[in-house]
Nucleic acid binder design. Sequence first.
DNA 1: ACGGGGACCGGTATTACTATCGGTGTCATG
DNA 2: CATGACACCGATAGTAATACCGGTCCCCGT
Lengths: 91, 91
Amino acid sequence: MVRVPLTISEHERGERLGRALRTARAGRSIVDVATQAAISPETLRKIERGRIPTPAFFTVVAVADVLGLSLDDLLAGLAADDAAEMATLGR
Amino acid sequence: MVRVPLTISEHERGERLGRALRTARAGRSIVDVATQAAISPETLRKIERGRIPTPAFFTVVAVADVLGLSLDDLLAGLAADDAAEMATLGR
DNA sequence: ACGGGGACCGGTATTACTATCGGTGTCATG
DNA sequence: CATGACACCGATAGTAATACCGGTCCCCGT
């Protein structure tokens, strides 16, 4: 196998990313945000739903920019969620 | 065409990203950094050389993390380079 | 009841990313 | 001169991302 399939934890990481973006989108529609980010609404929807676990770098950058998100903050939030899940499961 | 090929400007953007990462790598070897980032050395080399213009989000995140780079700063630098190139070419 | 906006899904098509392999070149050091 | 570290490249193979299509569902306003 040349390119290894994505692992389960990578899928979960993608889901956390998607949830964070969806939360930040708040009231706006997918079509609205996707159009501003110059990507397809389908792609944004799939990212938010975790069906694209490892989107392209500049795709995430464009969406975060439209939503006014700091990438560093976004990642810090993901790590925090990760730790919280670990703690919950480990208890 | 269902998935549009990458444009020239997207390639150039990838090259700027690669140059920034290579500069930040400074003295360390590709193998060293790639191993720490849990990616293939070939992949890191291709990213730095701009032969992978739109790498996966978490791939860039992992490399930036190993190099101690802030993603926000990294992107700000890319935008600045972009503006500088525009100004140079436009003169 | 009808229509529209918003979200979701599966299928399909095309391109891109990622990893491995074998080979080349350079440079420093023994 | 040999050896090793470092970087680069092309080819190959396999998986993933992206976009477009048609269809479905729910909810709200008229």
